[in-house]
């Protein structure tokens, strides 16, 4: 595909936000967005892991799986790479930066089962991105996810003590806020349109 990688980057943040248009990473999005601090931690961890695993998965897919005709194993390979990478990062952070470990470390195990990470790798294969495009797509999706969870956490903190109908408390209300946010993000589609 002949699309400027920068356009993919911008589009991944705003117009085709991984969470608001592709619904990926909803589980941790809803459960961790109670406070701004913890959502920044998780968002940064997602951004970091997403950028690197997309790059690694690109190399593995195009230089190992395709030549060996093992493409049907991509799900297993991708999930192993993601799990191994997360484990590795956790150990490195724990060893070298205890401060960072306390802010970021507790979120890392959550990330292995975050569908945004696997989803971006699968989108990269389906949309036939080049290496640069893939890395920027991964980074953009991570930033977009960070932006979305930050916005939701901010709103949820504001309305913490407001009256909410019993049936909507918790997940229901978060879903409605997210829906309104998704409506708002449609407004960005004037910038770039890419599917």
């Amino acid at each position: 595909m002949e699309v400027n990688p920068l356009i993919i980057f911008i589009a991944a943040i705003f117009t085709s936000n991984i969470l608001l248009t592709n619904f990926l990473g909803m589980c941790s999005f809803l459960s961790v967005s109670r406070e701004v601090e913890s959502s920044i931690g998780l968002g940064l961890a997602v951004f970091f892991v997403l950028t690197f695993t997309t790059a690694i998965n690109y190399v593995i897919y195009h230089f190992i799986l395709v030549p060996l005709q093992l493409v049907y194993l991509q799900y297993i390979i991708f999930i192993i790479i993601i799990a191994a990478f997360v484990q590795l990062i956790e150990m490195i952070i724990e060893r070298f930066s205890p401060v960072l470990y306390y802010t970021l470390g507790i979120f890392l195990p959550l990330i292995t089962v975050n569908c945004a990470i696997l989803g971006v790798s699968l989108f990269m294969v389906i949309r036939e991105y080049t290496f640069i495009q893939s890395v920027l797509f991964g980074a953009g999706s991570g930033l977009g996810w960070l932006l979305a969870i930050l916005a939701l956490a901010g709103i949820r903190q504001k309305i913490k003590y407001k009256f909410v109908p019993a049936g909507l408390q918790g997940a229901g209300l978060s879903l409605i806020i997210t829906g309104i946010m998704a409506l708002g993000f449609i407004g960005f589609s004037g910038i770039v349109i890419i599917q």
Binding site: A166, G167, A171, G172, L175, I176, T178, G179, A182
Partner: peptide, 26 residues
């Protein structure tokens, strides 16, 4: 067909099912 309605529909579904249940529990 677009993304926002999916969020709204799921929220409404949860509301319809959970609302009476939670009211009963109270």
């Amino acid at each position: 067909v677009m993304a926002p309605s999916a969020f709204f529909m799921l929220a409404i579904l949860i509301w319809i099912i959970e609302g009476p249940l939670r009211a009963n529990r109270k």
